[in-house]
């Protein structure tokens, strides 16, 4: 089986969010970059587990980004995977990015494309579905469990208010979330090995952008907390009922 895992570069979950250039650009000074947690902890680690279970599995990683993505790609390779492909572009429109991944997936004839359920920066939840539509493949989103049974993919996915178990033939696209696998820390052997794994940089395919970011905005600051004494918690209930009209 040939698996392609999509990895995105995002600011660390504790990064301070601020904007530059008249609120048109993310202020990246001093920001620590990480592999998008959904891509790393769930998509990549589950793919590595599949390769561990069947060593004939070919596992490739793809990132759509500029050269500053290379450190997180090396970190991903330290966790596992045979080689990585970086599509060299700074364009952040999801349709454009999905078009690049679809081109790579088509060229490499992968049986399975894994993405995270969303990135923690733009929260679009769009790439997996778009790649699937571009390739005319089934798409199972919000997967919490993935196994191969009798040559088919068996996937448990989150639906509104519960879970659904699906079965589909390969090839397909799956977006991954919590439950798929547990976070791993790269070991020294992996880190050393990652240095010599192939990282192929390719130029983007021709594609359109459907959206662009006009500006950013931070939420307004809170007015401050109104504290109620622990001796009179019933006063909190009164305030929520009468002042905040919350129930």
């Amino acid at each position: 089986m040939k698996i392609l895992v999509c990895i995105s570069k995002t600011p660390d979950t504790t990064a301070k969010i601020a904007f530059a250039d008249n609120n048109t650009k993310f202020a990246s000074d001093g920001v620590q970059w990480i592999i998008n947690p959904y891509d790393e902890w769930y998509a990549l680690v589950r793919a590595i587990e599949l390769k561990e279970a069947d060593p004939s599995t070919v596992l490739h990683l793809v990132n759509v980004g500029a050269a500053d993505s290379d450190p997180i790609i090396r970190k991903a390779l330290a966790l596992g995977g045979d080689e990585a492909i970086r599509v060299n572009t700074e364009n952040a429109d999801s349709f454009y990015i999905a078009s690049q991944i679809a081109a790579i997936a088509k060229e490499g004839s992968y049986d399975l494309v894994f993405t995270g359920k969303e990135t923690i920066d733009y929260n679009g939840s769009s790439i997996g579905g778009m790649v699937a539509e571009l390739l005319d493949l089934p798409y199972i989103s919000h997967a919490v469990k993935f196994t191969v049974e009798g040559g088919n993919a068996v996937v448990v996915r989150e639906i509104e208010g519960g879970e659904e178990t699906d079965k589909a033939a390969f090839p397909l696209v799956v977006s991954c979330q919590k439950g798929m696998a547990e976070q791993r820390i790269p070991n020294m052997k992996g880190i050393m090995g990652a240095r010599t794994k192939p990282l192929r940089v390719v130029e983007p395919a021709a594609a359109d952008s459907l959206t662009s970011i006009a500006s950013f905005e931070l939420p307004p600051a809170k007015a401050g907390v109104k504290l109620v004494s622990a001796e009179t918690p019933e006063e909190l209930v009164r305030l929520l009922h009468e002042e905040a009209k919350a129930f």
Binding site: S126, G129, E133, L134
Partner: peptide, 23 residues
């Protein structure tokens, strides 16, 4: 924007070549 929409809207965006704002 629930799990149903997240499964369909990106596909529809591609099919219609319609820009998607999710969230």
């Amino acid at each position: 924007n629930n799990t149903t929409a997240k499964a369909i809207a990106p596909r529809l965006s591609v099919k219609l070549k319609a820009g998607l704002v999710s969230g």
